[in-house]
């Protein structure tokens, strides 16, 4: 067990380190000179040289990487060349917004998908089960930003029930709920469709297991056997998918934040790409990538700890 956990941890640390190298190198090959981006095309060669010196651009690439990595470990993402802003507080603020969005969308997805997927599995030979499967198949194919736009048309424009965009922090709960509802539905419904299919398959698979047949032969009804013995077992693969969906949501949120003009990490990334703000792009990408690797690690860890077969094997 300990060996497997250590291996997982080692793999996590190695993946994070290599990922940071990739992010660093990818954005260092940026065509064009960051000094010119920062100072403008009218800057004199002396000014450009001084700027490069000041920002450590003349040191070897390895040194630049290590300094950047050291900054990351201290939570210091540097100062934007373009806006002159300290990037770290911006990342913190924006990350909070994105995490709230992603967290609520995931809660919505689970709340919808677990009952629907279970019903679809139990009734898989009946029309209601088939309808749920068909709707979830279609839901998987619809981009979340399109769902967002349609929600705006219906609930914000036609019915005028909810605002079409913007963000209010949770410290003002009423306004917050109004602003967060449509984006969460947009992100959550697509994930719910995906998760419904997994829950359905997991429950179908569990229904054929011997232990469920044994439970039934002991006199439990089909539903009671499923609730007492089945769902817990079906939960392991579903939990894994939920973890991986969180990673997908982090990236999916980039587009949905754009639809609803939400000041999250995704909007910051897209704005920074537009401004050619190298350091800011680097910071957001590294945060997202580390988050994804961390989620994958936690999924592996949870899977190892929760599945008795893996636990014994470990």
């Amino acid at each position: 067990m300990a060996v497997r956990l250590l291996k997982l941890l080692g793999s996590f640390v190695a993946t994070v380190l290599v990922s940071t190298v990739v992010v660093f190198l990818l954005l260092r090959v940026l065509p064009g000179d960051p000094a010119t981006v920062a100072l403008g095309i009218e800057a004199t060669p002396e000014q450009l040289a001084a700027w490069r010196e000041q920002h450590g651009m003349n040191t070897p690439l390895v040194v630049q990487y290590l300094e950047w990595l050291g900054g990351l470990l201290r939570g210091d993402f540097g100062v934007s060349y373009v806006t002159g802003q300290n990037i770290s507080p911006v990342i913190t603020d924006r990350l909070q917004v994105t995490l709230i969005l992603v967290g609520l969308a995931m809660v919505l997805a689970i709340a919808v998908a677990v009952p629907l997927g279970t019903i679809a599995a139990i009734r898989h030979q009946r029309p209601s089960g088939a309808v749920i499967s068909a709707v979830s198949q279609f839901g998987v194919a619809v981009p979340s930003f399109l769902v967002g736009m349609l929600l705006i048309v219906f609930f914000a424009i036609e019915l005028d029930w909810l605002p079409s965009g913007g963000w209010v922090p949770p410290s003002e709960p009423g306004e917050f709920l109004q602003h967060v509802t449509l984006p969460v539905i947009a992100l959550g419904t697509v994930q719910a469709s995906i998760l419904t299919r997994y829950v359905r398959s997991a429950v179908l698979e569990i229904q054929r297991e011997d232990f469920l047949r044994t439970a039934r032969s002991k006199g439990l009804t089909a539903n009671l056997a499923l609730v007492r013995h089945g769902l817990r077992n079906a939960g392991i693969p579903v939990l894994t998918v939920v973890g991986l969906q969180m990673a997908g949501l982090l990236v999916g949120a980039v587009v949905v934040e754009r639809v609803f003009t939400i000041p999250g990490l995704g909007s910051y990334l897209v704005d920074s790409v537009g401004n050619r703000d190298l350091l800011a792009v680097q910071a957001v990408v590294v945060v997202l990538v580390v988050a994804i690797v961390l989620i994958n690690f936690l999924v592996d860890l949870a899977f190892t700890l929760l599945d008795p077969r893996l636990r014994r094997a470990a």
């Binding site: 998987v140 994930q191 469709s193 995906i194 299919r197 997994y198 359905r200 398959s201 997991a202 693969p237 894994t240 998918v241 991986l244 969906q245 969180m246 990673a247 997908g248 949501l249 982090l250 990236v251 994804i292 994958n296």
Partner: peptide, 11 residues
Amino acid sequence: SAPADAAVPEP
């Protein structure tokens, strides 16, 4: 339908 292009169990 897999999140983030990840290799997940295919339903």
